[in-house]
C-alpha cells in the first residue's frame, strides 16, 4: 500500500504487533491440544514460525512487540508467570528478521524465502542467547549450563519449526497479497 519504511511506527505497526502477539498466545494454547514430539529437553513451539513471519512481513517494531507481548501472553495463559528476560529474548527473536523486511520482494521466491529463514535463524540465535545468558546472572549458572540447559534445546526446536513452517506461511502470504492487489 504505502512505500515501506523499516523503522516507521504508526497504527499499522501497533495493529500487527498486537495481532502477532495474540496469535503467539493463541498458538501456545494449541501446543496443549496437539501432541508434538519432544526430543529430550527440546520443545517445538509452532508459534515461533508465526513470530518470525510477522517480523519478516511487517518489520522490526512489529517483530519486537509481537515477541515480547506474545511471550508474556503465552506464559500468562499457561500460568507460568512473568519472565521479563524470556519475553525480551522473544522480542529480539522477532525483531532481527524484521530487519530483512525490505529485502523480501517476492514471498514465494526461493531466494527470498532462504533470506527470510537466514535472518529468522539469526534472530532465534541472538534472542535465545540473550535469554540464556541473563539466566546465568539471575540463576547463577555457568556458561556451559546456560548453553546446554537453556540455549541448545530452545534453539534447535525453534530452528526446526522455522525452517519447516516459515516457507509455508510465506507462500500463503504471497497468494493473499496477490488477491489484495497491493
Amino acid at each position: 500500500m504505502e512505500k515501506k519504511s523499516l523503522w516507521e511506527f504508526g497504527t499499522r505497526q501497533v495493529v500487527y504487533g498486537a495481532i502477532g502477539a495474540a496469535l503467539y498466545g493463541a498458538f501456545s494454547l494449541l501446543t496443549n491440544l496437539v501432541p508434538l514430539p519432544a526430543a529430550g529437553n527440546i520443545t517445538f513451539r509452532p508459534a515461533v514460525a508465526i513470530l518470525i513471519f510477522f517480523g519478516v512481513a511487517y518489520g522490526p517494531w512489529v517483530g519486537l512487540l509481537a515477541g515480547f507481548i506474545g511471550n508474556t501472553l503465552g506464559d500468562s495463559l499457561a500460568g507460568w508467570g512473568f519472565y521479563w528476560n524470556w519475553s525480551l529474548g522473544n522480542g529480539i527473536m522477532g525483531m532481527i528478521p524484521g530487519l530483512a523486511m525490505l529485502m523480501i520482494q517476492d514471498y514465494k521466491d526461493k531466494m527470498d524465502i532462504a533470506k527470510a529463514i537466514g535472518w529468522g535463524v539469526a534472530g532465534i540465535a541472538v534472542g535465545i542467547l540473550f535469554s540464556s545468558l541473563t539466566e546465568m546472572f539471575v540463576g547463577g549458572i555457568d556458561l556451559n549450563t546456560a548453553l546446554v540447559g537453556y540455549f541448545t534445546p530452545a534453539f534447535i526446536g525453534n530452528l526446526v519449526v522455522t525452517v519447516i513452517l516459515l516457507p509455508i506461511l510465506m507462500i500463503a502470504f504471497a497468494a493473499v497479497n496477490a488477491r489484495r492487489g497491493r
Binding site: V14, V15, A18, A21, A22
Partner: peptide
Amino acid sequence: FTMDLAFRFL
C-alpha cells in the same frame, strides 16, 4: 496500547 490490543484480539 499494543498491549491492550493484543489482549483484545487473543
